[in-house]
Design a protein around this nucleic acid. Structure first.
Length: 490
RNA sequence: GGGCCGUUAGCUCAAUCAGGCAGAGCACCUGACUCUUAAUCAGUAGGUUGUUGGUUCGAUUCCAACACGGCCCA
């Protein structure tokens, strides 16, 4: 197949055709044409001339004329190539071109008998040669493995995929605009950290040669962003990649995009309200509506969302009897009766961790409409401020939509003593053989000792939000180049 | 890590159940055609059936292992 095409290309070269020129300029995109022809009809090819370019997606060849469809970044347009218009030599060259080649054409516009606006070419030239054939035009490219590995083919062939990634880009822009509008400062903090902090996850490890030290790809930017709050910025955000050395699934990619933002003089309750506004705003800008459909479920971002303390959700949704909340044994029995196993860890788990596990399995999948769960146990919230009224719980929420965690926010712990104690507590629970260094981020404690204003912060999983807004079942569908094992061959 | 499913021409898929020369559409190549749009018509060509091994006179088909992928579970 490729051999055959090479022979044809050889014929083009021998005819003096340059395969990869770089001197062509366009005057209009496909989208521009729509405006140009507004209010006009018929053959207006004498009125003006345009220079256009794009990839040839289809050719209907007749003897001495042809219709082609070509595509640029804004859309697809038809062109009519006639031998009497472009001249015999150019027409002969054109007949040697393939679907997939990039061409440049000049000419005027006319409507075909079906009313379709068409470029009547008075010149055509090759702009870049495709050496391989494109996938089939009607069925397109379906094989998921090939779509992920060769995303460029997926983007060429599948318009819905192009649209999806443009939506994702608009979504990120809308979030950025929302925060900038509220005086947040966009910052970038280290991706490579000497101590991976801000979350509980296995990090990727790397080595810096000239510093002769281990570094870790960050699992979260949190501790650095809060240093910036200490530094006086008061409102900061970062949209960037986190890396977690864990499993790959329809909901997990080893690198994923996270928004984190921090606002001084705000509480976790303020952030819940702000999150409602942000999601409504972003959903409207991306999908045109604050009501979206995800995998058959209608999800409504309108109005105020349900706010439910975790204990109450366990009682109401999981059927936990309030009388057993104080008893490890009863909770473990209850978990066992629901088929939840804790592996060998249960001896080590406090009530807070058991409750959280029960919540993850029994409640989380049932939270379809946007729901804020509040009142997380301190045990699972090492960076959150202690509730003034209930010191065993944190001033924290998580947001669940369509049965998944989408966001996590809390009033920040800014008491350095309490923070240090919680780090120590966390260290005591680290597994042996863990690759992560068993050290405390002393500089973060030092920063807190210089004083951090009362602050609330939140993280939002950008990929998961993109899944919601694009109705995608797998995270791989919203990441341009998801991670896969190397293929043996293409 | 476990379970189920998949891998056949450039692409989308048949044939496998019940072993017997591996097929179609589109793409490609040649020819005809100046309003087609999944163009049409005629003809040609295109395959190490994911890899390795086993059973068999004979394996795309049955068996095993492996690789890669999808979905579900942990």
């Amino acid at each position: 197949m490729i051999q055959r095409r090479k022979e044809k290309i050889q014929a083009l070269v021998e005819a003096g055709v340059e395969l990869f020129p770089n001197d062509y300029r366009i005057s209009h995109t496909v989208q521009d044409i729509q405006h140009l022809v507004e209010g006009k009809s018929g053959d207006i090819s004498g009125e003006f001339s345009v220079s256009m370019a794009g990839r040839m997606m289809a050719v209907n060849l007749f003897g001495k004329s042809a219709f082609i469809r070509f595509r640029d970044r804004t859309g697809q347009l038809q062109a009519y190539i006639r031998m009497d218009k472009v001249g015999a030599p150019a027409y002969a060259m054109f007949k040697k071109l393939d679907i997939g080649d990039f061409v440049g054409m000049t000419g005027g516009l006319f409507q075909t008998k079906t009313g379709e606006w068409t470029l009547l070419a008075d010149s055509i030239r090759l702009l870049s040669k495709a050496m391989r054939p494109l996938p089939e035009k009607f069925h397109g490219l379906k094989d998921p493995e090939k779509r992920y590995r060769q995303r460029y083919l997926d983007l060429i062939m599948n318009g819905d995929v192009r649209e999806l990634f443009m939506k994702r880009s608009r979504m990120v822009q809308a979030i950025r605009a929302f925060l900038l509008d509220r005086a947040f400062l966009e910052v970038e903090t280290p991706m490579m950290q000497p101590l991976p902090g801000g979350a509980d996850a296995k990090p990727f490890k790397t080595f810096h040669n000239s510093l002769s030290m281990d570094l870790f790809l960050r699992i979260a930017p949190e501790l650095y962003l809060k240093r910036l709050i200490t530094g006086g910025f008061e409102r900061v955000f970062e949209i960037n990649r986190n890396f977690r050395n864990e499993g790959i699934s329809t909901r997990h990619n080893p690198e994923f995009t996270m928004l984190e933002f921090y606002q001084a003089y705000a509480t976790y309750e303020d952030l819940m309200t702000m999150t409602e506004e942000m999601f409504r705003d972003v959903a409207r800008q991306v999908t045109g509506s604050a009501r979206i459909v995800y995998q058959g479920e209608t999800i409504d971002f309108g109005e105020t969302w349900r706010r439910l303390p975790m204990l109450e959700s366990l009682e109401k949704i999981a059927g936990v009897d309030p009388s057993m909340l104080d008893s490890r044994e009863q909770l473990l029995d209850f978990a066992g009766s629901k088929g939840i196993s804790f592996g060998g860890e249960s001896d080590d788990m406090g009530i807070g961790k058991i409750l959280t596990k029960l919540f993850d399995v029994l409640v989380e999948p049932k939270l379809i409409q946007p729901t804020f769960i509040t009142g997380y146990p301190i045990e699972v919230s090492p960076l959150s401020r202690r509730s003034s009224r209930q010191p065993e719980f944190a001033d924290r929420f998580e947001l669940f939509i369509a049965g998944r965690e989408i966001a996590n926010g809390f009033s920040e712990l800014n008491d350095p003593e309490d923070q240090k104690n919680r780090f120590v507590e966390q260290l005591n629970h680290k597994e042996a053989g863990d690759e992560t260094p068993h050290m405390i981020d002393e500089d973060y404690i030092t920063a807190l000792e210089y004083g951090m204003p009362p602050t609330a912060g939140e993280g939002i999983g950008i990929d998961r939000l993109a899944m919601l807004l694009t109705d995608s079942a797998s995270i791989r569908d919203v990441i341009l180049f998801p991670h896969m094992k190397p293929a043996e061959k293409l």
